[in-house]
């Protein structure tokens, strides 16, 4: 596969200001997520993988470096432009599902289309079709509290994919689920990755889960310490690890 990269990060840093003290969370990360990639992002707490997820998803902007999502340079975008970029190219799946309570499954899935200005009828049609693809065609009008954890996460996955994004960012998607349900959700994500070609980037603590990915990126102390894409024979070969001491606070 030689399509244009979905996300390209070059020497990206993110420093937080906490009570006047600069706290570097990412220190010069470079990596590329190719179209259709399946990447596991691993590392201990505080390694910067959540910060990296937020940057890759366009929820945050880097303090230094170049970050290009869907062909657009994130650093130059205003908040409304960034919102539009998220809406069009990124799908999020969270550990805690983040479904709107008191809102039916179909309306939860349709939510991103609201901000795209799609009419109510078409929204529901597309949301219902998407729920069918995740195996919840019979649960359209159930509310989150009427659904099991696995079903809720499927609704969240449908919501992430209803806009036809190029990248699906999943932050510990099986973290709140038992192992059987978690495995089913993981299989669903993998199937969607294969079927629709959406790149899947997944943050996980679980070594078994990480082992299933075609590519693993390990982080520690705000830098990438290992990237299996650097090995030959993988789908994407553009990612590269930087030394652990390199490029802090740029």
């Amino acid at each position: 596969m030689s399509r244009a990269p979905a996300i390209e990060a070059v020497d990206v840093s993110r420093t937080y200001q906490l009570d006047g003290v600069s706290v570097p969370a990412l220190r010069g990360v470079s990596l590329t997520v190719g179209a259709g990639d399946y990447v596991a992002l691993i590392g201990p707490s505080g390694s910067g993988k959540s910060t990296l997820m937020h940057l890759l998803g366009g929820l945050d902007r880097p303090t230094a470096g170049r970050l290009v999502i869907g062909g657009r340079e994130v650093g130059t975008l205003s908040p409304p432009e960034l919102a539009r970029l998220r809406n069009e190219t990124i799908g999020f799946v969270f550990q805690a599902f983040h479904l709107l309570p008191r809102t039916s499954a179909v309306d939860n899935v349709a939510l991103p289309l609201v901000y795209r200005g799609v009419g109510a009828r078409q929204r529901r049609e597309r949301a219902a079709a998407m729920l069918g693809r995740v195996g919840l065609g019979h649960r359209l009008h159930h509310r989150p509290n009427q659904l099991s954890g696995g079903e809720q996460q499927r609704v969240a996955i449908a919501r992430a994919l209803v806009t036809d994004p190029t990248v699906l960012l999943a932050d510990e998607p099986t973290g709140n689920l038992d192992s059987t349900t978690g495995a089913a959700v993981l299989e669903l994500l993998e199937r969607l990755n294969t079927e629709s070609g959406v790149a899947l980037v997944m943050v996980t603590h679980d070594a078994e889960v990480a082992a299933r990915a075609r590519r693993r990126i390990a982080m520690r102390d705000g830098v990438v310490v290992a990237d299996s894409a650097a090995l030959p024979g993988e789908a994407s070969v553009l990612g590269e690890a930087r030394p652990a001491d390199g490029g802090g606070g740029r």
């Binding site: 409304p80 901000y115 806009t163």
Partner: peptide, 16 residues
Amino acid sequence: TREIGLRKAVGARPRD
């Protein structure tokens, strides 16, 4: 706040 975060994540602009 979480609802606001989620809405923003899926594409709500500050104005929305």
